[in-house]
Amino acid sequence: MANIQSLDPSASPLDYYGWELRRQREAAGLRQGQLGALIFCTGSLIGQIETTKKVPTRDFSERLDAALGTDGVFSRLIGLVLRSQLPTWFQPYADMEAKAAYISAFQAQVVYGLLQTEEYARALLHIEHPHRTGEMVAARLDRQRVLHRENSPALWVVLSEAALLQEVGGHGVMRKQLARLLEFRDDPWVQIQVLPFTVGQHTAMMGSFNLLRFDDDPDLFYVESYDQGHMTANSSVIKERSVGYARLQATALSPEDSAAMITRVMEERYGNQS
Score class of each variant (00 low, 15 high):
R58C: 11
Q109T: 04
L35R: 07
D59M: 11
L68M: 12
A252F: 08
L114T: 12
V237F: 06
R213I: 08
L30H: 01
P13K: 14
G36D: 00
T70E: 13
E167S: 04
L125D: 15
E256G: 02
A154T: 13
E224R: 15
L86E: 15
P218M: 07
V157A: 00
Q107E: 11
A28W: 02
L253D: 08
Q32G: 03
H171Y: 13
E240L: 11
A101E: 07
S61W: 09
T232H: 03
A246T: 14
I127R: 09
V157Q: 01
R213E: 12
S274G: 04
Q107H: 04
E128Y: 14
V168H: 05
Q193T: 14
Y222P: 02
E128W: 14
E62I: 11
L64Q: 00
S225Q: 12
G72F: 11
L14S: 05
Q107M: 05
S236D: 13
G43Y: 11
A252K: 00
E119N: 15
R145K: 07
H148C: 08
L178R: 05
R25E: 03
G18Y: 00
L253Y: 09
E256I: 11
A204H: 15
Q201I: 07
V146Y: 03
F184G: 02
M96C: 06
F90P: 01
L82Q: 06
V110A: 06
T57V: 08
K53E: 00
E20H: 00
D8F: 01
I192D: 05
R269Y: 05
R23N: 06
V173P: 03
E150C: 14
M96K: 08
Q273I: 05
L141Y: 12
D8C: 02
M206Y: 15
A105K: 08
R247E: 07
A162E: 13
I238R: 06
D65F: 14
K54W: 04
G170N: 10
Y16K: 10
G18W: 00
G69F: 14
P13E: 09
M174R: 12
I103Q: 00
G134R: 04
R122F: 04
P188R: 10
M231F: 06
P87W: 09
R31Y: 14
F106R: 09
A162M: 05
G169I: 06
V110N: 03
T198D: 15
D65L: 15
V168D: 00
I103T: 07
D65Y: 15
D142G: 06
E62W: 13
A66T: 10
S44P: 07
L159A: 01
V158H: 06
L220W: 04
A98S: 05
V111E: 02
G72S: 14
T88K: 12
S274M: 02
V73G: 13
L38N: 08
Q32Y: 11
E118S: 10
E224Y: 09
H230S: 13
A139E: 13
V199T: 11
F40T: 08
P196N: 10
I46P: 01
F209M: 15
K53N: 02
Y120L: 04
S104R: 13
F221Y: 10
E62L: 12
G47N: 06
N210T: 14
T133R: 06
A27I: 05
